[in-house]
Write a protein that binds this DNA or RNA. Structure first.
Lengths: 243, 243
DNA sequence: TCCCCTATCTTTACATCGTAAAGATCAAAT
DNA sequence: ATTTGATCTTTACGATGTAAAGATAGGGGA
């Protein structure tokens, strides 16, 4: 026993002027804190700043580098500041995942609007799905790879729910059926599960580099996007015994 | 500055008699260490013991509980002992993942052998895939969820490769084609990607609890296995615009 | 037989992380 | 003007991964 004390933490000065990203409406929260005031004690919009900092850290250092302390450092506040706004790491990750789902939903909707031909319209959503994951692998990892998410948080629950609803709706349009919210036939459920599993599985395998072997064996210069298209449109062979 | 020292580590006595699991050929590595000898300094088969300990910890405490120190504790050795055999955490996880892939491959092969009807033979592999993941979610997580795997390790590379080869082969049988090792047509690649994405995506979504919503809306008592069957066998609707 | 060599395992040490608890600061309500 | 409550900082602690040095013993060569 005899817990002497040691240096503990400290050392790192969290008093360096904050990187205020200054995306407008960031500083000067209320009472027009005139000049001079380097880093006021109260940030004013720390919650948003932390989420943006987290996104930056995630893109820069990957999932492994996304720690509470790293985010606080990036935002220029003390390492315990995030606790007040998110409770714990799970809280921060959950809120960040919610941001991701919202970005994701926006991207999906935009891709649908941009589609002109029927074929484009049929492939728009899956392509946007994979494209988002490729453009934001860290975010996608937070949303779908992490075990530490708290879906009881309203923001995350709603954003994820909206995502699912969009998917179910799209499948319903493909089958020319109205997918009611409360009950599904087995075939409807199977269609939804198929669509989601296909695109989610493809994305995970792609991000994990597990499709590289396949892509390398394909005709010169075949991209992942092309493989995705083929996977979704190529005729399905009859189910023969595979054993 | 002034790094005083403090208690540091220690405290926990790693001298408690080891849980020797005694699966035969575990103790008495070489020179018949007769009786009395509680925990000899040299374990004799620590590497295997650590892997088994890791599997136990994983099943008991989940992925989050699987730490180098916890594994060492479970095996009854000092916390730094694993380093010698696996280098670092990535090493241990990679070797454990290799174990998982081998178990997985065995399960797949066994399910094929057990199939009698053509329909069973067609569904045997996907069902075994999902069943393994449900029976060993921790192991499946190590194999497919973790980012910390080193595929340059021969054991992991081989085991994962064998897994992929089995899949490609099964797809080849379904299409009544010989899938050559070095080149694939786009349709062949698409078929492999489709099969793998479908079953892998389904498994991930299932383990993450994301299919619960769907299952709850399905006819009373529909199991995940039934949904999987339907997903794989139900007629696919023509691809209409989904936007 | 003796001795040393080397692989194996333990100790010790340290930076980093998540989290709890108490103190400091400040805006707004009373 | 004073108090109150929210926000942020300090301090502290246990846990983890990893490096480095020390202890132990089994086996091969003299």
């Amino acid at each position: 026993m005899a817990k002497t004390d040691t240096k503990g933490d400290a050392a790192r000065s969290p008093r360096a002027p904050r990187k205020t990203t200054s995306t407008a409406a960031s500083r000067t929260p209320r009472g027009a804190r005139s000049a001079k005031t380097e880093t006021p004690y109260h940030h004013g919009a720390l919650r948003e700043a932390l989420l943006q900092a987290a996104e930056r850290v995630l893109e820069r250092d990957g999932l492994a580098g996304l720690t509470l302390r790293a985010v606080a450092r990036e935002a220029g506040v003390s390492h315990a500041a995030p606790t007040h706004h998110f409770g714990d790491l799970t809280g921060l990750l959950s809120e960040l995942a919610a941001v991701g789902f919202r970005q994701f939903n926006v991207a999906m909707a935009a891709s649908c609007d941009a589609a002109t031909t029927p074929l484009e319209a049929a492939l728009a959503r899956p392509k946007a799905y994979v494209a988002y994951a490729q453009a934001h692998p860290g975010m996608y990892g937070i949303m779908f790879r992490t075990e530490r998410l708290d879906y009881s948080r309203p923001s995350l629950h709603e954003a994820a729910e909206a995502s699912f609803a969009g998917l179910a709706n799209a499948v319903g349009m493909m089958r020319q059926e109205q997918i009611s919210g409360d009950a599904l036939t087995l075939n409807q459920g199977a269609a939804i599960a198929r669509a989601w599993s296909l695109v989610h599985g493809f994305t995970m395998l792609l991000l994990d580099g597990r499709l590289k072997d396949i892509l390398a064996r394909l005709p010169e210069g075949t991209t992942a996007e092309r493989l995705l298209e083929a996977m979704l449109t190529a005729p399905v062979t009859p189910k023969l015994p595979s054993c």
